[in-house]
Computed example of a mutant assay.
Amino acid sequence: MDTSPRPNTVIVVRAWMESGQPAGFRARLLGADPDDPSSSLLVADPTHVLEAVRRWLDHIVQGGSKSS
């Protein structure tokens, strides 16, 4: 049984649509960088949200090691 400490982080995703904008999707991710809990990321494409969450999850699964 692996008893090594695991990182304990949280990510918050807030998404909304801005009317009057060509691609009105916007999302802000708070804590997207587990090594910098105060990090913030603003994106305008749902795919970028998925990529950021995937990187965050990979970081957690790998036990906090840096991943590219």
Rank of each mutant, 00 (worst) to 15 (best):
L42Y: 04
S19F: 13
E51M: 09
D45C: 10
S4P: 03
R6G: 06
R6A: 14
S65G: 07
E51Q: 14
A27N: 03
L30V: 05
G24V: 13
L42H: 07
R14I: 14
G31F: 05
K66P: 04
A23D: 15
M1F: 06
G63M: 06
L29Y: 01
K66M: 14
V12G: 12
D33E: 08
R55M: 13
R55G: 05
P34H: 03
H59M: 06
T3Q: 04
T9K: 01
G31Q: 05
S39N: 06
S19N: 12
P7T: 14
P22H: 13
D2C: 04
N8M: 12
D58Y: 07
L30T: 05
L50Y: 07
M17F: 13
L29M: 05
R26D: 04
K66E: 11
S67N: 15
R54P: 01
S19T: 09
S67L: 15
W16C: 04
V10G: 08
R26C: 08
T9N: 03
L57I: 14
V10A: 15
T3V: 06
V53P: 00
F25K: 03
L50F: 07
L29T: 00
K66H: 12
E51L: 13
L41W: 01
L50G: 09
L29N: 01
P37N: 08
P5V: 11
Q21N: 09
M1T: 08
A52R: 01
L41A: 06
G20C: 07
A32Y: 00
E18C: 05
R26L: 09
L29P: 00
G63W: 11
S65Q: 10
Q21R: 12
D58H: 09
K66D: 11
P34I: 02
D45A: 12
M1P: 06
D33I: 02
G64S: 04
Q21W: 09
T9P: 00
S40K: 08
S39P: 06
I11W: 06
V12C: 08
V61S: 13
V53N: 00
E18Y: 08
T9V: 15
S40F: 03
P5L: 13
D33Y: 01
Q62F: 15
H48T: 02
A23Y: 10
V13Q: 01
H48Y: 05
R14T: 14
A32R: 00
V61K: 12
S40R: 08
L57W: 10
M1Q: 06
S65R: 15
V49R: 00
V53Q: 00
N8V: 10
W16T: 00
P37D: 10
S68T: 12
R26M: 08
S65T: 08
E18I: 07
G24D: 14
